[in-house]
Amino acid sequence: MDRAQHIIESTQDIFSSMIMLDVSAGEPYSRHKTVLENSISGIIGLAGTRKGLLAIHLPKKSALAVTTAFLGMDVDEINEDVRDAIGELANMIGGSIKSALDPKGSNIQLSMPSSVFGEEYTIDCLADAEEITVPFSFDGNSFLVELQIAAE
């Protein structure tokens, strides 16, 4: 399975089983570190035999909708619950990517998930990393899942 397809299947599985949201995937592309605006990103690093990062980027409105569905309670501002929920989403998608790259689980280590929120920001990883981004949509909302991974 290619990486884009793995991102799509992992993300759809996590959203349907944990958040009860059906998300549609668009055409994968390379984001080239374009600026993210009024968004929150959950990020998890990969280290060991493969280095890189997995990030999920959500516009504020989408992040609030996802967190509301995830926790089953209304959330109307970016707070600690939103940061934690988006970080945990990155953790689960990153864990799935790690399983594909390292089935036994001992050659790649995952960092602790983190989150970034701001009006304008970019996220850089390794200069020579392969980068793939998959856009997703649900109920008038959108988000991106991005994988940056260094060559073997």
């Binding site: 990153g94 864990g95 036994k104 689980g105 001992s106 995952l110």
Partner: peptide, 9 residues
């Protein structure tokens, strides 16, 4: 956990 590789388990 997300970590369910055979070595870790």
């Amino acid at each position: 956990s997300t970590e369910t590789g055979a070595d870790i388990i």
